[in-house]
Computed example of a mutant assay.
Amino acid sequence: MADKQALNIVKMKKMKADGIPLTMITAYDYPSARLAEEAGIDIILVGDSLGNVVLGYDTTLPVTLDDMVYHTRSVVRGAHNTFIVADMPFMTYHGSIDESLRGVRRLMQEGRAHAVKVEGGVEICETVKQIVSAGVPVLGHIGLTPQSVNTIGGYRIQGKDPADAQRLMDEAKALEAAGAFAVVLELVTEEVAEAISRAISIPTIGIGAGRYTDGQVLVYHDVLRYASPYREKRFVKTYADIGTQIREGITQYVQEVKQRAFPDESHIFKADETVLESLYGTASKGAK
């Protein structure tokens, strides 16, 4: 979309006030980002989910800051007119504020991101304040936080009892007070996600959080079923099955090469007779 203009955090807040849902998708490289921008996506998240869907890890924990800078830079090159958020990877924002800001600086200066995302609630709010004070927009992330999966007992739905619901509400309000421009709610019960969305002035972006958040985010590879084997997820809707198309396309390529059906006459380049004469002495000797 050549005439597309990137959103900013002021426009996002107005979209919440006007009841216009935000659309977000992950992307990890130039072609994915370019296609997402051409499709009209509002926000691209360069998620540390790249560890699972691109780098082949079982969790997001091994993803490094170097990984995030590299992939963010690739995404930015593909989507010049889209607001791009980069994940702060595991343990890069829980130490000193100086260490956290060094990571933020790399994602903004080297990766060219427009904002960073951090997982957690009250315990990281002071860091969020410091990052925002340095002039960097911050997207919060509560509910199921993959970087903390080992301490929250696995991939469990959040907000299923009153105490947990109150915890999530308190975390969302604390992130808003700390200056976050929006907050992702992951695997949160629909009722709690709706209550949080009504209680705070910044946009909520849901993933497995029901119908009443201010926006939705999904992983690129889930939207397009771009994986093998693909693991079904209840909160995901598949819009295209490119994984099967890719496998079938490569299978056909392999078969045609084995059968010498590719390349055929339409894929080759002919030399004139003078070239053949220089190689074989006469054109007739080179003819097969």
Rank of each mutant, 00 (worst) to 15 (best):
V46R: 03
G47N: 12
D48H: 10
D48I: 07
L50Q: 03
G51C: 08
G51L: 05
G51F: 05
G51V: 07
N52G: 07
V53E: 13
V54M: 15
L55D: 04
L55W: 08
D58F: 13
D58T: 15
D58K: 15
T59C: 14
T59Q: 14
T60N: 07
L61R: 07
L61G: 01
L61Q: 08
L61T: 06
P62Y: 07
V63T: 04
V63A: 02
V63K: 01
L65F: 14
D67Q: 14
M68A: 12
M68F: 12
V69G: 05
H71K: 09
H71M: 05
H71D: 03
T72H: 06
R73T: 09
R73Q: 14
R73W: 13
R73M: 14
R73I: 06
R73H: 15
S74T: 09
S74V: 06
S74H: 11
S74F: 05
V75E: 03
V76D: 00
V76A: 04
R77K: 15
R77F: 06
G78E: 04
G78K: 02
A79L: 01
A79W: 00
A79P: 00
H80I: 12
N81T: 10
T82S: 09
F83E: 00
F83S: 00
F83Q: 00
I84N: 07
V85L: 10
V85S: 04
A86N: 03
A86H: 02
D87K: 03
M88H: 02
P89H: 11
P89F: 13
F90H: 07
F90D: 01
F90P: 00
M91L: 13
M91C: 08
M91R: 09
M91S: 10
T92W: 00
Y93K: 04
Y93F: 15
H94N: 14
I97D: 05
I97M: 12
I97R: 05
D98Y: 11
S100K: 08
S100G: 12
L101A: 12
R102G: 11
G103V: 12
R105P: 00
R106N: 07
M108R: 02
M108Y: 01
M108A: 05
M108L: 13
M108V: 05
E110I: 04
E110Q: 12
E110S: 08
E110M: 09
R112D: 12
A113V: 12
A115T: 01
A115R: 00
A115M: 05
A115I: 02
V116D: 00
V116L: 04
V118I: 15
E119S: 03
E119W: 02
G120C: 10
G121F: 03
V122I: 15
V122H: 09
V122E: 11
V122Y: 08
E123G: 08
E123R: 14
I124S: 00
C125M: 08
E126D: 15
E126L: 13
T127P: 00
T127S: 02
T127C: 07
T127Y: 01
V128G: 01
V128N: 01
V128C: 04
V132N: 04
S133K: 15
A134K: 06
G135I: 09
G135E: 10
G135L: 12
G135V: 11
V138D: 01
L139C: 09
G140H: 02
G140L: 03
G140M: 04
H141V: 08
H141C: 08
I142W: 10
